[in-house]
Design a protein around this nucleic acid. Structure first.
Lengths: 162, 162
DNA sequence: CATTATTGTTGTAGATTATAACAATAATGC
DNA sequence: GCATTATTGTTATAATCTACAACAATAATG
């Protein structure tokens, strides 16, 4: 089928293929795209730092909310984190199996569970957070600096209120 | 079990339950958490704007990359977007079925596909992008302003290089 | 006290992401 | 030239995440 005639002969030195960088085109100006890439990088770094603790971002967030609001009802914890209450069940199940959190009877409502950290959960969270500051947040401040980090946080908050 | 003695009697007016806001605790200072919330809000807004076009962020990104790099090989497109090449197949299949993109023979490599937008894909992408600017990016600039948007973009890029 | 709402839960389906394997083809070493 | 190795697109599969419907127990309401 004469795919390759006599020879390409290179019109103007014809770069073989690697062709340098890929143009992002319309993507370049889209905030959502740049936000997603940054978020993936940060979560990746978070998970690397938490590898030894076997703690994913969602699990950490649940422990943190419970620590700051002991006795909060299960539905309100999931709601605060934007996690579907049906999906929250298995998430909490695992934290309970690992003896980091516990479901207790809620005073005055026999439908609800009041959530607490176990003593083990308290120390585990403290330790994980300490390690997170030393590894993860440290790397972030290395590229952002403290001032720009706080600036970024306030810019992000304005977006969350979209 | 005497769960409720005679009566709670309210120690200090004892707010019934709603208890105002939930304390974010350790989460409050974590960049990853704030980043994720912002990213979800922005993607949500993106999808709302693209509802009539039936275009998700990943699909838009593929079209945008192909438009900016016509003839780029399939593997390089997926690589540029950080999409596993196995998962990229079905993604591209759908765009091809919708006659927005097409696989063509790559010159000089019978293994590879060179990707192009169809004429329909070109106009569809242009139209979708126009609508995106008018709806989505407009709302973003309403809360950020142009200067802060560009500032945010540069801060995000520094994080991506983590 | 009958009706309606909420809570935790299970089951299920759709998306997303990662991995392994495979055939076709290309690139490389000798 | 030819055997070996690498790449490309693809399928299949599993893990994870998310959303939704349904249900029993319980609470709130009229």
């Amino acid at each position: 089928m004469a795919v390759k005639k006599t020879k390409p002969a290179a019109s103007t030195e014809a770069a073989p293929e690697p062709a340098g960088r890929v143009d992002l085109g319309l993507l370049d100006g889209l905030l959502g795209y740049r936000l997603r890439r940054a978020q993936l990088a940060v979560f990746q770094d978070f998970m690397t730092a938490m590898k030894d603790y076997d703690l994913r971002p969602a699990q950490f967030s649940v422990l943190a909310i419970i620590e700051a609001n002991p006795g909060l009802k299960q539905s309100r914890v999931s709601e605060a984190l934007g996690i579907n209450r049906a999906n929250f069940v298995a998430l909490l199940d695992e934290l309970e199996q690992r003896k980091l959190a516990r479901r207790a009877a809620a005073a005055g409502d026999r439908r609800s569970n009041a959530l607490y950290l176990t003593p083990k959960g308290e120390s585990f969270l403290k330790e994980a957070y300490r390690h997170l500051l030393q590894q993860h947040e440290r790397r972030i401040e290395a590229v952002l600096g403290s001032a720009d980090k706080h600036l970024l946080l306030s810019l992000l908050d304005r977006l969350t209120a979209l």
